Amino acid sequence: MSLLKQHKKTVLIILVLLITMGISLSFALKKDETVAKLNGEAISKDELYSEMVAQYGAATVDKIISDKIVAAEAKKQKVSVKASELTNEIEKLKASYGGEDAFNQALESNNTTLAFLKQDLKNYLTIKKLLEPEITITDEEMKTYFDENKDSFAKAEQIKASHILVPDEKTANEVQQKLTDGGNFAKLAKEYSTDDSTKDSGGDLGYFAKGTMVAEFDDAAFGLAVNQLSKPVKTKYGYHIIKVEAKKEAQEANYNDSKDKIKATLLDQKIESEYTTWLEAKKKNYKIENTLEEA
């Protein structure tokens, strides 16, 4: 979603600085109230506001105008984004980051919120619905893209594994002995594992490809047969006992299996390249006055 990334960059750089800081300050501060001091000299809220408007105001207003045109065109064409579609996109993003925790950390590191991201996603999906009927993707384009990016469509070997993580070797040996004596792996994971993200699901890590985990864990896990238990494996996190539950062999890239993904990728690329042209054409149908831009 390169267009979405472009929007997010604008949002993060401009709106977070101008709107989040500026509007929140307008509620918290009175006119001319001091926001900082330099050698005793006051820097007022109005001075801050003026500086931010001078730097970011025109671009921010232009983005707001663009968003309003998108909304108006969506209303004309009876285009809307369902809550379920938005939720589906959020879930895809979470999966791409490796789970909800990593996704939330990404939001935090980018100084944004889920509500803010949802609004941006909604705008992107609206643009996508408006432009998609005007876009053509040929079989030749798809085949060319596949040939040029074949490695990205190949599937590496994967295994499905569970683990029990404990802090020391003594505890690891104790757990392994209980497993050797017929103990239930899932129950022992709930009892002993210090991995809070997996212990309640019996230590289940799902499927993962080689190179996903730390080297010591990776080497041990991919060396096991299905249903085989590892000896205690030491990593920087502690000691792991690993059980492999299933395997998926590596697969070469297959064009027919990749067509949906290729089409979606090319569609996003074409939306990004054609959005500006589409927007400029639509602007001619509206009376627009941006005094900040004119200034």
Rank of each mutant, 00 (worst) to 15 (best):
M1E: 10
S2H: 12
K8L: 15
L12Q: 14
I13S: 10
V16D: 13
I23Q: 15
S26T: 10
K30T: 14
E33V: 07
N39V: 09
I43G: 07
K45A: 11
K45S: 08
D46M: 08
E51L: 14
Y56E: 07
G57L: 03
V61W: 12
I64Y: 08
I64C: 08
I69F: 05
K76C: 08
Q77R: 15
K78G: 10
V81L: 14
K92H: 09
L93V: 05
S96K: 15
T112C: 06
T113V: 09
L114D: 08
A115Q: 12
L117M: 14
K122G: 03
T126I: 10
T126S: 13
I127Y: 04
K128H: 08
P133R: 07
E140R: 06
K143W: 06
Y145H: 12
D147R: 04
D147S: 09
E148V: 01
S152W: 03
Q158R: 07
H163R: 09
I164M: 05
I164T: 01
I164A: 00
L165R: 09
P167Q: 14
K170Y: 00
T180A: 15
G183Q: 01
K187P: 01
A189M: 02
Y192N: 09
T194S: 11
T194Y: 10
T198H: 10
T198K: 10
G203V: 03
F208K: 01
K210W: 03
A215W: 08
E216I: 03
E216K: 04
F217T: 05
D219Y: 07
A225N: 14
N227S: 14
N227E: 15
Q228M: 11
K236V: 08
Y237N: 15
I242E: 00
K247V: 06
K247P: 01
K248G: 00
A250P: 05
E252A: 06
A253D: 03
D257K: 01
K261L: 06
K261F: 04
E272C: 00
E274N: 13
W278H: 05
W278C: 03
E280K: 12
N290K: 12
N290A: 11
E294S: 13
